[in-house]
């Protein structure tokens, strides 16, 4: 990880217009991604993790979705205002993605070779033969045994873990600068998850790829990520280096989240800590702190206004009135 910022997301807002009102799926998200960094985005379902990243590569279905504001600067150029033809050269090439379910993200009718060669030919301008050699090499790197044979098989002939390896090989085949991984291991078993995380760590270090890792699992980010963003109801409520954030979580939501996970290394028969209530419905959310109905430390101001970011040293911010002088 270096100090060079390759992706800047500034005050990103993505809204969906539905019959019931406006769903503010992402509502003012800001973060930086440095070269070679692994950034984790954690949050519960519906907190806006995936929509954030679909917005980053400008893939929000419109309608009903609409990017309502903000900027996504990739090396200083705004991906949100870029013409489609130009962003297509970046998507899958410089910025590529891995999705949760490797079965639905591979085309079941096409051989793996066809799908991989297509990407490489399109983005790297190689001829088909060299592209296929490159694809075989990538599959080998991703730990697929006998890649020369396996490459001509169809996706259904691979197991879940193997399919995710194919996806990783495919997404890294154009040497992307940024890899967005949306719950890459959530559909896999623990022993396979360990294999895939190991592979991602190894390859991103070797190729110098920056990774944005979206997940709901605190265990996965703890072992993988340099930096962490915690999302709640469409906003990043806390951001900082993983070590510091786990050692001393500041936002009451982050604190609750870490405390409510049962831990393998701490046997305890006491009751688990649990955050009361339910995550909010993000339709027509008022401009208050969305966490206040579930927060033990809620104050009067939390019901009226959303807190701005309070910085703690370099790289660490929290959006909570507890730390905001305006709230005192």
């Amino acid at each position: 990880m270096t100090d060079e910022v390759i992706l800047q997301v500034k005050d990103l807002k993505t809204y969906f217009h539905v019959d019931e009102g406006i769903v503010k799926a992402v509502d003012g998200v800001t973060f930086d991604l440095h070269k070679g960094e692994t950034l984790g985005i954690v949050g519960e379902s519906g907190s806006g993790k995936s929509v954030t990243n679909l917005s980053v590569i400008n893939m929000i279905p419109d309608p009903p979705g609409k990017i309502a504001g903000g900027q996504v600067l990739y090396h200083g150029k705004d991906l949100l205002t870029m013409p489609q033809a130009e962003i297509r050269k970046i998507r899958g090439n410089k910025v590529s993605m891995i999705f949760q379910d490797p079965m639905t993200s591979l085309n079941p009718f096409l051989r793996v070779s066809t799908q991989m060669v297509e990407t490489i030919v399109l983005h790297q301008g190689l001829d088909e033969k060299t592209a296929k050699a490159k694809a075989v090499e990538m599959l080998k790197m991703a730990g697929i045994p006998a890649p020369e044979k396996r490459i001509d098989q169809y996706p259904h002939q691979f197991s879940g873990g193997m399919r995710q390896r194919v996806m990783i090989a495919m997404s890294l085949s154009c040497n992307p600068e940024i890899l967005i991984a949306d719950e890459p291991t959530s559909a896999l078993d623990v022993t396979i998850q360990a294999q895939i995380l190991d592979l991602m760590k190894d390859l991103s270090a070797r190729l110098g790829t920056a990774v944005i890792m979206i997940t709901h699992s605190l265990g996965v980010v703890a072992g993988m990520c340099d930096t962490l963003c915690v999302m709640y109801a469409g906003r990043i409520v806390e951001r900082g280096p993983t070590d510091a954030l786990f050692a001393e979580p500041k936002h009451p939501y982050t604190q609750g989240l870490i405390k409510s996970v049962p831990r393998l290394d701490q046997a305890s028969s006491d009751r688990l800590f649990s955050i009361r209530g339910q995550p909010p419905n993000v339709i027509d959310l008022p401009d208050c702190c969305p966490f206040y109905p579930r927060c033990d430390k809620a104050m009067d101001i939390c019901k009226r206004k959303y807190p701005g970011a309070t910085a703690f040293g370099k790289n660490r911010t929290v959006n909570c009135w507890l730390y905001n002088s305006e709230g005192k």
Partner: peptide
């Protein structure tokens, strides 16, 4: 199985040794 399950604590995760099983 126990060594593969992630623990939500970066300090522990860094020093943990995993037994990575091969194959499916």
């Amino acid at each position: 199985l126990l060594s593969a399950a992630p623990i939500p604590d970066p300090a522990i995760e860094k020093t943990r040794k995993r037994i990575i099983l091969t194959g499916d």
